[in-house]
Simulated assay, not measured.
Amino acid sequence: MSAITTSRGDRIVYDDLGAPGAVTAVFIAGAGPTRAEDPVTLATGEAFAVRGGRAFIPDRIGRGESTSEGPIDLPAQLDAIGALAAEADAPVILIGHSSGCAIALLAAARTPNLAGLVLWEAPLGLFEGGAASWWTNVRRAIEADDLEEAVAHYMVGMPPEWLEELKKSPAYPQVVLGWVPDGEALMEVEERGYRDVLSAVRAPLIAIVGTETFPGMIATADELAAAAPDGVSEQLAGAWHSWEPDAMAERLARLAGVTK
């Protein structure tokens, strides 16, 4: 376990796998589990390190062991990613998962040592009425301190069993407060448009979906790839919004140009 402190004073705790100086994969989780509850990302980071890369797997601000000194919002999350990229002191690949893709998209142009941007099943262009309308409903519920309603609004369109499983967590419903960066990022990316967000990103972009995926995900991946100066869309072994660790590690190793 390693830790850094951002300029705002947030403490980011992360797993550091691999050798210093190697191309570093920085994983950006979506509205999901802590790193301790995410064996898939851990296994991916370990497999990437074995192949000659390095992986940073952080707890998002206010989640797991990472603590916040202020509101958990998009600027704070972008600062955390910037601090991790600077700590790597090497070329960095940002890997966004789900809503973490929107955060990764906005972080990319702020990452001077960016070597690649990998987006796994970005939920963009999929909200009825658009992300701005969806996020307005979530935000209103948060501001009214009706966090259960906020969670329900946030998870509109997701498999109902995901919400039922979340309700068993001791973090429910306060967990939605840590999803503010995701909502703000999804709204900003859709409002600005993919081409504008990606206009300054010269590193390769790979928009990936699983071999079993949800409706609309392939079209979104294709649109993101087409909007990037250097983009491709691909399918990779995975299902239910999760990738196969070895397959993802191998793809990251090819992108990074490392192999052992």
Rank of each mutant, 00 (worst) to 15 (best):
T6A: 01
V13W: 09
Y14K: 11
Y14A: 11
L17D: 02
L17M: 05
G18N: 06
A19W: 14
A22W: 09
V23D: 01
V26Y: 03
F27H: 06
A29D: 02
G30N: 03
T34V: 10
T34E: 05
E37Y: 08
D38L: 07
A43F: 10
A47I: 10
F48Q: 07
A49L: 08
R51P: 03
G52A: 03
R54W: 00
F56G: 08
I57G: 02
G62C: 01
R63A: 07
E65M: 11
S66C: 08
E69F: 15
G70W: 10
L74F: 04
L74A: 01
A76M: 03
D79R: 14
A80M: 04
G82F: 09
E87A: 15
A90F: 04
S99H: 00
L106R: 14
V118Q: 02
V118S: 03
E121A: 04
E121C: 02
A122H: 06
L124Y: 02
A132S: 05
W134D: 00
T136Q: 15
I142N: 07
A144Y: 10
Y154W: 11
Y154N: 04
M155R: 14
M155A: 11
P173S: 00
V175A: 05
V176F: 09
D182R: 10
G183A: 02
G193C: 07
V197T: 10
S199G: 05
A200E: 08
G210H: 10
T213A: 09
G216L: 03
A219E: 13
A219P: 10
A225S: 01
L236V: 04
A237S: 14
S242K: 07
L255E: 00
T259R: 14
